[in-house]
Simulated scan of single mutants.
Amino acid sequence: MLSVREEKQPPSNYSIPVSSKISNINGLKWLLILVPLAYIIILLIYPMYGLFKLSIMDNDGFTFQYIHHIFSNPVYLKVLRVTLKISILVTVISLLISYPIAYLLIRVQSKIWKNIILALALIPFWISLLVRTFSWIVVLQNQGVINQILIGLGIIEELLKLLYSTAGVVIGMVHVLYPFMFFSLFSVMKGIDQRLYQAAEGLGARPLMAFWQINLPLSLPGILAGSLLVFVMSLGFFITPALLGGANEMMISMVIENYINTTLNWHLASALSLILFIVTVIILALAFFLLRNNAVLKDVI
């Protein structure tokens, strides 16, 4: 009978990864939580508290006079309406522009065309915000390219007032903010299984029907995320409205800047900032409560 000799196996050279060793250090997980939390408190929450406190506190103590002054003055209410109107327009137009581009990018088969479309979508990120805004001043002015082309084609007889108007502000802000909408949509759309389209078309669905029943419902998280991102950024946008807007298109950020740097009325600036913050929080909360039971959007909200 042959006996099998059990040989001692040499000790394994396998070693625990350094990341696993680090993760086992006592208290490290709490440290990884406390460091970002301290960062947020020191650099975000504390400065906001110091600013917002000025809206309800003065040398005499607690007061509501600054907030009451804003809501009792129709000028501030008009500024708030203009801010909301422009923000909604920018969000809707950015969605209408970005959605077809993102859809085309995931449907096109050629890698060359994919790279070209992606590069064109990235161009606004490669150019300075001020350069883009000043370029729109050249394009939108009375003797600018748009007016000259429309007059040359005989479409209009009088020059359009595009600069220092709502139209100019919306055009400039869409140019700046639409990439945030586009990449929110694209990041969601590229995760949609393309075999679903093949299955739908194989079952007799036309391309438009397949789009309505597959792509649109599954892209709702990207639509919501991009819309909230663009809308919230639009509420506090400053540079483009300040350069392209007129006296009748003043957004709330322009009024806050004027009170801080020109009139030095920090209390009214703080009250306007607090109102803008509350409006933003209310909008985000409404989006959460209205859509929290949607199965497709559960990962977004």
Rank of each mutant, 00 (worst) to 15 (best):
N215E: 12
V35R: 00
L208S: 13
F289S: 05
K114F: 04
S72Q: 11
P221F: 00
I283Y: 07
I137Y: 06
L185H: 02
Y39G: 13
F64Y: 09
T166E: 12
A205M: 08
F52M: 07
I97M: 12
K111T: 08
P10V: 13
F180Q: 01
E249G: 09
L284P: 01
N142H: 09
Q65A: 07
A247F: 02
S135N: 08
L274V: 00
L160W: 05
L220S: 09
A271C: 06
G191D: 14
I171G: 10
V82R: 02
I192D: 03
L203F: 07
L54P: 11
G168C: 00
K78D: 01
M57S: 11
F231L: 05
H69Q: 12
M189E: 03
V300T: 05
Y197E: 03
V18M: 11
A119M: 07
I278L: 14
L34H: 02
N142A: 11
L163S: 04
H175G: 12
S234C: 02
S270T: 00
V174H: 11
S253T: 01
Y66A: 06
L244Q: 00
E257I: 14
L80V: 05
L37A: 06
Y99D: 04
E249L: 03
R206C: 11
R292A: 01
R195S: 12
H69M: 09
L43S: 14
I16V: 15
E158I: 00
L37P: 15
S273Y: 07
V279Q: 13
T63Y: 00
A199K: 02
A102F: 01
L203H: 00
N265D: 14
G246Q: 04
Y164L: 11
L129I: 13
N26W: 13
M233H: 02
T263H: 11
A205W: 05
Q141C: 01
A271W: 05
M57C: 14
T166F: 10
T262V: 12
Y46D: 10
K111N: 10
Q198C: 04
I137M: 15
Q65D: 14
R107F: 01
K161Y: 09
Y46G: 12
G152F: 10
V75K: 11
Q109I: 08
A210L: 10
L54E: 06
I283F: 13
M1E: 11
F62H: 08
S219L: 08
